[in-house]
Design a binder for these strands. Structure first.
Length: 604
RNA sequence: GCUCGCAUAGCUCAGCCGGAUAGAGCAACGGUUUCCUAAACCGUAGGCCGCAGGUUCAAAUCCUGCUGCGAGCACCA
């Protein structure tokens, strides 16, 4: 749904009352309706500026006239012109069923049937390198975008693209083969990918140290550097040609990394429909380059092959084949794009990759277009800013990284020690562990998603673990409280009765009984759920949904805290209305969080 | 230098398809528990919305210029 059921119903009433000569449709009016700055003013506000020209009257006059013209015996019970705004008050007996019924049934938004297949490529981890917090932003973003698009009615293929070839692997191999003895090559039982990543870092550091010393005039270091470089180049060539000396080792170690990644994705609750590997597109990429060089689309420049995309003014040449005849990242991206188009018949292709590669993707899409792939117009890069640590940008060399395994263990341990320990003995140990997992994951996901994509994120483990304020755990807590209310209500023989939904009269009475401001505000907030999910999907901006859910959680907690809204102590229609509201809030909150990949624990 | 992004409360940010008195979290101070989870709620204090112009009935929001910060910029991925 693009607009809330309340806005839509209200807009119908307003449009019917509009004077002749005003060309505003229901959808348009619904889009203009917004909450007034203060709840005392009304439930929805209609700004009258747009009518001024057509009616040749001042907006305040129009607001006053509309306030008198609108019928107040239906959904709208009260109208008030405040300056250029027309504020309306709604009858909750009618409004509550409109908003809450679908939520309670667990189908808050019936997405339009879109006939578009969308591929979302994200994560793209390199094998033989460690997975750290910085990589999490991409995983969280990509997964949320997949979920949001699915909720919005698209057929989505979630794709990963593993970097399983390239210079970094040659460096790792160099360490593994040349610096370790047989015992040293024995992998640990767990975290073998991370273990390989350490090797890559050591190799990188050693080469960098030699380079520094050589620069300072150290002849011995220069010799070592030359030898090291020669060996890594040799290994890289052998890797690319699948030389028997390295093929078996590559295969085995690569799998260690893939196993690590699979375990991480499992912990994160992230799933892919298709895995691509750089190793499957490097050859086809070079073949494409040759083909389009023959066809005159690509050209030679200083011995290299590429294409001049003059649209990218500051750097028009997009290199696709090096002087030595080998391919680049870009080369593979072309072959991968073709594979995506042909194998999956996708209409739209989304790449979630950090913002530093914006130029690269501009080139890729321009090039695809010039190669004749019309789908290039439906390719889009979703850029996002990088994650840093309080001590500065993440750097493997400086050791300024937090590896995924350590992150997860420290967070879950902190949650158990500081919050969940009090339930020890009361809850099964297994539930405590599971809750720590869900909450730690919620904290990470929310933290990674809540900021706009072009804001840098400083990952400060201390403050994220404080789980106070605008956090994932705050959302989870609000959902857990609704659970708790429903659980206790059922225990007190006051369970929510779903047959209420099939009895319009009872339903109306239940809605009309909700007279407290906290109840009204919660209903109004819930009405925005599906429009907000649609918006986040449409703009590919999970952060906007995060902001909305914080407001919803606030409304839930205000309601839960309000003495005058106590559920267990109420009876009759009020009880029924409140149970309906809490049930809808619970389902809505869980569903909304679910679109971000955040789970709500039963209790916490 | 060129291209892109950012600049809003002490800190971190939201608001940016122009519209009511610019909001939230953290930090500070004060309050709420015989009451469904105090991981909560309420209140107080805190703002030349980077600077200067322009467009408009109306600008944090759109346009231009400037300043500061960050990123990218041919054989890395």
């Amino acid at each position: 749904m693009e607009t809330s059921p309340l806005a839509l119903a209200t807009a119908r009433i307003i449009v019917a009352a509009l004077p002749d000569g005003v060309e505003l449709g229901v959808d348009e009016v619904a889009g203009l309706l917004a909450p007034p700055p203060k709840p005392e003013l009304g439930d929805l506000a209609f700004p009258c500026f747009r009518l001024a020209k057509a009616l040749r009257k001042g907006p305040p006059v129009i607001a006053t006239e509309l306030a008198q013209a609108l019928p107040t015996d239906g959904l709208i019970t009260e109208t008030r012109a405040t300056g250029p705004y027309l504020n309306v008050r709604l009858d909750l007996g009618k409004a509550a069923p409109l908003v809450l019924s679908d939520l309670v049934r667990g189908q808050p938004a019936t997405p339009p049937a879109r006939e578009q297949r969308v591929m979302v490529e994200y994560s793209q981890p390199n094998t033989h390198k460690a997975f750290h917090v910085g990589h999490m932003r991409n995983v969280c973003m990509g997964d949320a975008i997949v979920r949001l698009l699915r909720a919005d009615g698209y057929d989505v293929v979630a794709a990963n693209y593993y970097g399983d070839v390239g210079a970094h692997i040659a460096k790792c191999m160099w360490w593994y083969l040349d610096h370790l003895d047989d015992a040293g090559r024995e992998p640990p039982a767990e975290g073998r990918g991370e273990w390989l990543g350490e090797m890559y870092t050591r190799a990188n550091n050693l080469l960098a140290d030699w380079a520094d010393a050589a620069k300072a005039g150290d002849a011995e270091a220069q010799a070592k550097l030359d030898a090291g470089r020669a060996r890594t180049t040799d290994l890289l060539q052998k890797l690319e040609s699948r030389h028997p000396e390295v093929a078996e080792v590559w295969d085995r170690t690569r799998q260690w990394s893939l196993d690590d990644f699979a375990e991480i994705y499992r912990w994160c609750g992230v799933e892919f429909d298709r895995a691509f590997y750089e190793s499957e597109v490097d050859e086809p990429g070079l073949a494409l380059v040759e083909e389009y060089l023959q066809r005159g689309i690509f050209v030679e420049s200083e011995g290299a092959v590429g294409i001049f995309n003059e649209e990218v003014k500051h750097m028009p040449f997009f290199m696709l084949r090096k002087r030595d005849g080998t391919g680049l990242y870009a080369t593979k991206d072309l072959a991968l794009a073709r594979l995506k188009f042909e194998e999956h018949a996708i209409d739209r292709s989304i790449y979630v990759v950090d913002t530093r590669q914006s130029d690269h993707f501009r080139h890729v899409f321009l090039t695809l277009h010039k190669m004749g792939f019309t789908q290039a117009e439906r390719c889009e890069h979703v850029p996002y800013e990088v994650v840093e640590l309080p001590s500065g940008p993440m750097s493997g060399r400086k050791g300024n990284v937090i590896l995924f395994r350590a992150l997860r263990e420290r967070m879950t341990a902190h949650l158990v020690d500081n919050y969940l320990a009090k339930y020890r003995g009361q809850w099964p140990d297994e539930e405590i562990e599971r809750t720590a997992h869900v909450v730690a994951l919620g904290a990470i996901k929310f933290g990674m998603l809540a900021r706009d994509v072009n804001q840098k994120i400083v990952f400060d483990m201390e403050s994220w673990m404080a789980v106070e304020g605008d956090t994932g755990p705050y959302l989870q807590y609000s959902a857990a409280r609704t659970n708790s209310i429903l659980r206790k209500a059922a225990k007190a023989d006051k369970p929510f009765d779903p047959s209420l939904l099939d009895d319009p009269q009872r339903l109306q009475a239940a809605g009309a009984a909700l007279v407290q401001p906290e109840e009204r505000q919660l209903i109004l907030e819930l009405a925005e759920l599906s429009p907000q999910v649609h918006r986040a999907a449409d703009k590919l901006r999970p952060s906007t949904l995060c902001t909305y859910l914080l407001g919803l959680a606030k409304a839930i907690n205000r309601f839960s805290n309000a003495k005058q809204c106590h559920v267990l102590r109420s009876e009759g229609a009020i009880l029924e209305g409140r149970l309906l509201l809490v049930q809808a809030a619970r389902e809505g909150m869980r569903w909304g969080m679910g679109q971000l990949g955040i789970e709500a624990p039963e209790r916490m």
